[in-house]
Design a protein around this nucleic acid. Sequence first.
DNA 1: TTCAATCCTACCAACGGGGTCGGAGATGAA
DNA 2: TTCATCTCCGACCCCGTTGGTAGGATTGAA
Lengths: 162, 162
Amino acid sequence: MIFTTKAEYGVRLMVELGRQSGARTATSLKVIAESEALPLAYLERIVALLKKAGLVESTRGAHGGYRLSRSPEEITMDDVILALEGSVAPMNCFVDDTDGSSRVLCSHEADAGQGCATKLLWMRVQGGVMEKLQQTTLAELVAFSHRENTPPPTERENLTHA
Amino acid sequence: MIFTTKAEYGVRLMVELGRQSGARTATSLKVIAESEALPLAYLERIVALLKKAGLVESTRGAHGGYRLSRSPEEITMDDVILALEGSVAPMNCFVDDTDGSSRVLCSHEADAGQGCATKLLWMRVQGGVMEKLQQTTLAELVAFSHRENTPPPTERENLTHA
DNA sequence: TTCAATCCTACCAACGGGGTCGGAGATGAA
DNA sequence: TTCATCTCCGACCCCGTTGGTAGGATTGAA
Ligand code: FES
Ligand code: FES
């Protein structure tokens, strides 16, 4: 399993916020939790990561909630995933324990001038993942998840009922 | 963390076998375990996965050991990783519990005809990983880790003894 | 027959993931 | 002013998986 549910829930949350990015009013976590059937208390901890990364803004108090700090088109998924997972590392020698970033701490490199056999592979894989993440914007995911939201106006009834 | 140490150790093991793919005699796990400083008993379980996948062959008994069943150039890393990890799934909704393969069991798809918001993202990421794995051959990794092994034929004696 | 190897199963400790709880500040509405 | 909602924050807990060990059975060369 590459990603944890933090990433899954966090992406879902972002998509939900992306849907409402036009709205004036912030969206409360409670609404999102119910609409996506996710545990509220857990979501609170997840959205904190997104906030720390500057991807969402919050207003406290009654009628408060969260909204995107940029438009969905300007948010690439590598920012989102990095904020949620800390790093996208194929192996633990890729994650810097101090700050959680993705520096390569290959312990086998210094040995006898030998190249670490696996490093080449992991680097490529990580590159492949990061590439795909950078190429994907939140706006795309929002569009992809359009249900009865902006449907091709025909055959609405196929969706609502069989 | 995308991959477990199974993948790490397994790849190291394959590289080590790849180095000796010219040799007549099979290589024992003990030798590999010592040269790579990996726990022997654990390696036994790992190599079993590789054997089940048909990537290595074994001869039992004294002076037995393992050798590659194909040449390193013909072995792509997706086979290796798949054999070791079972599947490369970005999320558990991608792994079929019955056989461990990588079918997509998206539980959010049927809902009201809505596309699962995250599916698009995970599919792309998985595609990126698989692509990189397929593009990388064992031979490349062996070459990358070339130390004094297939050295410009001088100074052989450095290896056999100091 | 002895030794060195593969093979196989069961067992175990530790860690991280996934989640809950309780409470402490904001803040608008009644 | 009070109250209902929110965001925020830390501690806590359960449990599956990972990483690894132990012990043996089987095979085959010397
Ligand atoms: S030890 Fe992991 S890349 Fe070298
Ligand atoms: S539930 Fe995971 S892809 Fe839809």
